[in-house]
């Protein structure tokens, strides 16, 4: 972690805590993944680790039921409820979004680590790393679905995490992104980590038997030069523990 977090850094972890679901439903990022990352950040000398999301369901319930509040408490990290005053209009000058209120802490923190969970989604096919940035959007964010892939690429252009850790300990293979049925959950006991968010998402697609190019946002982001979609051009290290 020392490569990504320097002593004294304020680190923001952005898991997917969008839904009021227990960890076994794989609708939210696995709390053990979040907890382990928080711990590693502190080991690397981080001053503060802050964990936040703008959930769709009630934030209190999402934080508790996802198990992430407990994991954060164990690791000594702070759960942050979004404060309406801290959104600020960020100029995106993108294809779909000209500007949008985004959560200020993402830009003020020394380091940001994206910790999405891998699951299906009705519109984007899958929700992985890039889609996770919807969780820092304020405003009428459900309008974004009209041009979702382009909007995500517009966000990725300005949000540059130090690291992306895709949680595939359990993946949700149907009825996403909310889930709620254990028979839709598949256990893979895997995490995918990298600095290139497009590459992480492209690999994430393979966990569902898809290709990166099947996911609109991955394809567009790669075309825009924001990362690499073609897995054959990447050096991928697979480890069994």
């Amino acid at each position: 972690m020392k490569r990504f977090v320097a002593a004294g850094d304020v680190v923001v972890l952005k898991p997917n805590i969008g839904w009021d679901r227990a960890p076994q439903y794989a609708a939210t990022t696995n709390p053990d993944v979040v907890g382990a990352l928080a711990k590693l950040c502190y080991e690397a000398g981080a001053k503060k680790v802050r964990i936040l999301d703008n959930p769709v369901n009630d934030a209190r319930r999402c934080y508790r039921q996802s198990g992430i509040a407990d994991a954060a408490a164990t690791a000594g990290a702070e759960m942050v409820y979004m404060d309406g005053r801290k959104y600020r209009d960020v100029r995106l000058d993108g294809k779909a979004l000209k500007s949008w209120p985004l959560y200020g802490e993402i830009f003020e923190a020394d380091k940001v680590i994206n910790v999405p969970v891998a699951k299906t989604h009705g519109l984007s096919g899958l929700t992985l790393g890039m889609k996770n940035w919807m969780g820092i959007m304020g405003g009428a964010r459900f309008r974004v679905h009209q041009r979702l892939d382009e909007s995500l690429v517009d966000l990725v252009r300005v949000i540059r995490p130090a690291l992306t850790v895709l949680d595939a300990v359990r993946i949700l293979t149907a009825n996403g992104p909310t889930g709620g049925d254990l028979s839709d959950v598949k256990r893979l006991d895997t995490v995918v980590a990298g600095t290139d968010q497009v590459a992480v998402d492209s690999f994430g697609a393979t966990l569902f038997g898809m290709k990166g190019s099947d996911i609109g946002s991955v394809r567009l982001a790669a075309n825009a030069g924001l990362g690499v979609m073609d897995l054959s051009k990447l050096q991928i290290k697979k480890i069994g523990v």
Binding site: N57, G122, H145, N175, G179
Partner: peptide, 21 residues
């Protein structure tokens, strides 16, 4: 939007909380 305005939108499906949507 998808019915009347040929515009993509799936928000209601996305947030529907029942295990089988």
């Amino acid at each position: 939007l998808p019915f009347a305005h040929a515009t993509p939108c799936i928000v209601c499906e996305e947030i529907c909380p029942t295990p089988k949507k």
